[in-house]
Design a protein around this nucleic acid. Structure first.
Length: 270
DNA sequence: ATAATAACCTGAGGGC
DNA sequence: TGCCCTCAGGTTATTA
């Protein structure tokens, strides 16, 4: 479900609710996620949450000297509720806080994950080997162009490849390519440096715009407080097959790339 | 190394 | 109303 903006919005929602709180205990009801919740996860008990941050689509909670790494998969959602809040279906685990609240993780499709990392979290799985963070100055046209040069797969798949750039998922990949005027099926190596300039600028702009809107809610995703993200109202082509292209009016086309639906305008994107 | 494919899950929505 | 089919904001393991 969530791409970079949705994870960032989740982080920002969690930060004031978690920072400085002590984790009294961890309750796991269902370890069954894409990667099973590790047995030693209750090692966080007694630790203070000193920061809430994000890398790619992962949320990082610094707790004591360790790090809780959380991934939302497609349908993961974190809420902070009273300890007495009734359980819902697919509530996998709680971090019980020192103020009577719990951080509760719900995930119907179970594609998410939870890791406990001791030491530097960036040098080991699942964070090691990730590509550029798109909203930082590391992500430049020169970098992207160099990473596309040896690749022949469709450029959309390269944008969604986490070893090149992180956080761009299926929705934003289509939106970014539309806004850049680049056809999603173009071979990666065929994309010029000038086009990479455009792509990099558009990726930064679209992701930041979506964060400001609270992310994109189409079905499952919601913010920490349960409210929807408004960026869905500003999608131009994603999920709109046959609708008029907002630029030229011709019908939005679809194609499947990497088993994912892809939306584009065959007139505006070359 | 890169690319293509299948796989992991549940639930919502459309067609009949 | 219900069944059956398709599809869904992600990642990884396995093949060529």
């Amino acid at each position: 479900m969530p791409e970079l903006p949705e994870v960032e919005v989740t982080c920002r929602g969690l930060r004031p609710l978690l920072t400085g709180r002590t984790v009294k205990a961890v309750t796991v009801r269902n370890r069954s996620l894409r990667v099973p919740v590790p047995e030693d996860i209750d090692g966080f008990a007694g630790g203070v949450i000193s920061s809430v941050s994000r890398r790619a689509k992962y949320i990082l909670l610094a707790i004591g000297g360790d790090t809780a790494v959380i991934h939302l998969g497609m349908t993961g959602h974190i809420s902070v509720v009273d300890q007495s809040e009734p359980l819902k279906k697919h509530d996998h685990y709680d971090f019980i806080l020192d103020n009577g609240k719990v951080m509760r993780y719900n995930d119907p499709r179970r594609f998410g994950g939870l890791w406990r990392i001791s030491g530097d979290p960036f040098s080991c799985s699942p964070l090691a080997g990730l590509g550029a963070e798109p909203l930082t100055c590391d992500f430049t046209a020169e970098y992207l162009h160099s990473r596309l040069q040896r690749r022949h797969c469709p450029v959309k798949l390269s944008l969604m490849n986490n070893s090149i750039v992180v956080g761009v998922g299926n929705i934003y990949a289509s939106e970014v390519l539309f806004a850049s005027g680049i056809h999603p099926c173009r071979p990666s190596s065929d994309v010029s440096l000038d086009e990479c300039e455009k792509l990099v600028a558009v990726i930064k702009c679209k992701l930041e715009e979506s964060i400001k809107s609270g992310g994109t809610t189409i079905r499952n995703y919601s913010q920490v407080d349960g409210s929807r993200g408004e960026f869905a109202d500003r999608l131009r082509v994603y999920g709109k097959p046959g609708c008029a292209c907002p630029n030229c009016g011709s019908p939005v086309q679809t194609v499947t790339l990497g088993q994912r639906s892809t939306f584009y305008c065959s007139v505006c994107q070359k």
